[in-house]
Computed example of a mutant assay.
Amino acid sequence: MTPAERDTLLCRLADPEAPAVTVPAEAVDPLLKLARDHNVLPVVTRKLAAQHRTADLEAARSELTLLIGLSLHLRGIAAKVDRYIADRQLEAVIVKGPVFARQIYPTPSDRPFTDIDIMVAPSARAPIGELLTSLGYQLFLKPLLDHTEQNQEEKWIQPSMDALLIEVHGNLVHYQGLRRRISFGYAEFMQSGQGNANAGMPQFFVAVVHAALGHKFHQLRLLVDLLQAFRHLSPDEVTALPEIARQLGLALEARLCLELVAELFDAPGAGVAAGRIAGGSASRLATRLVDGAAVLAAPTAFLSKVRRHSFRGLQRIVPRGAG
Rank of each mutant, 00 (worst) to 15 (best):
M1F: 11
M1H: 12
E5S: 13
E5Q: 14
E5W: 00
R12Y: 01
A14V: 11
P16C: 01
P19V: 09
A20P: 03
V21P: 04
T22S: 10
P24L: 06
D29C: 04
P30D: 02
A35Y: 02
D37M: 11
N39Q: 14
N39A: 15
N39D: 13
N39P: 00
V40C: 12
L41P: 04
L48N: 02
L48P: 00
Q51I: 05
R53V: 11
E58Y: 01
A59R: 09
L64K: 03
T65Q: 05
T65E: 04
L70E: 06
L70Y: 01
L72W: 03
D87M: 10
D87I: 03
R88W: 08
Q89K: 15
L90K: 08
V93W: 04
I94T: 13
V99W: 08
A101P: 08
A101L: 07
Q103L: 14
Y105F: 14
P108Q: 08
P112L: 07
F113C: 05
D115V: 02
P122W: 14
S123T: 15
R125F: 06
I128W: 07
E130Q: 13
L135I: 02
G136Y: 03
F140T: 09
L141M: 11
L141S: 05
P143S: 05
L145Q: 15
D146T: 10
H147Y: 11
H147S: 10
T148C: 03
Q150C: 00
Q152M: 11
I157E: 06
S160L: 05
S160E: 09
A163P: 00
L164F: 01
L165V: 10
E167G: 00
L172W: 13
L172V: 13
L172P: 12
V173Q: 12
H174A: 12
Y175T: 08
G177M: 12
G177W: 13
Y186C: 11
F189N: 11
N196E: 10
G200W: 13
G200C: 14
G200S: 14
M201S: 15
P202F: 10
V206C: 05
V206R: 02
A207K: 09
A207S: 15
V208L: 02
A211S: 15
A212P: 08
L213G: 02
H215F: 03
K216R: 15
F217S: 04
H218R: 06
Q219I: 05
R221N: 14
V224S: 09
L226V: 03
L226T: 05
Q228N: 13
H232T: 07
T239R: 15
L241C: 10
A245F: 11
L248T: 10
L250M: 11
L250P: 07
L252Y: 14
A254G: 06
D266V: 04
A267D: 00
V272W: 07
G275W: 04
R276M: 04
A286D: 05
T287N: 11
T287R: 15
G292T: 10
G292D: 09
A293L: 13
V295G: 10
P299N: 06
L303C: 01
S304T: 13
K305E: 14
V306H: 08
R307V: 07
Q315Y: 07
R316T: 11
G323M: 09
